[in-house]
Design a protein around this nucleic acid. Sequence first.
DNA 1: AACAGCTACAACCGCAGACTT
DNA 2: CAAGTCTGCGGTTGTAGCTGT
Length: 224
Amino acid sequence: MSTLIEEEIEVRKGPWTTEEDTLLTRYIGRHGVGPWNMLAKCAGLKRSGKSCRLRWLNYLNPDIKRGNLTLQEQQLILQLHSLWGNRWSKIAEHLPGRTDNEIKNYWRTRVQNKQPSSSSLKEMSSQFSVPCQLPECIVPSGSVINISQQIEFPQHETSPNAYAHTCVDNNNLVLNGSYNIGRSGQDMEAFRLASMSAVGEGCWICNEMTDSLWQCRELGEMGN
DNA sequence: AACAGCTACAACCGCAGACTT
DNA sequence: CAAGTCTGCGGTTGTAGCTGT
């Protein structure tokens, strides 16, 4: 009979091998998902239940979608993150086949790391208004997008008057200032969502822009 | 070709809440 | 009701692969 310490030493960590993947997949295929600690032992894996759960949910589960996030998914993540913050599991519930880990990684590597520099922040804080020039948008050159829609806010008590008007010039998306920015975070949120809607399905608004808007909101809150 | 820096992603850790004894 | 255990979540880290020099 092994001691507790010896058992702890036996627990494997690090990257999973194909043999381990096979064992876990086969066991769940036969018996389904159960208590993870028990499952790990019964499957013959020298892994913690936690590790098995993570491996299954984030990698081995056949329901998981592979490949890059679609533009719609990226847009949805931004919208949901603006509503719920870092509630990754909650956000993942609205993206079938995507895991909270994947969404979290996406956010950290491709959104959060592209925060505007402090100098650009200062510049923005001095203006704190539209229009603002936006780099690297993939809207076809020459397109014109007009929106004048009222944004619905699922969780906000009121619907602020958020209107954005956009046009595209030489691949740069420009927001024309028909949005009346208040100093509340909610107004900034409205502008943010309006801008995202402006780009529409199949198009994508650049990360720099949404982050910049987010910073604008924070600046607005700081100013209060 | 070799190296450094960067990016994306898998995996671990700590914590909190739920559940069980 | 308290203590122990399990589960799930969010933050963080390690590293393989890619890219630029």
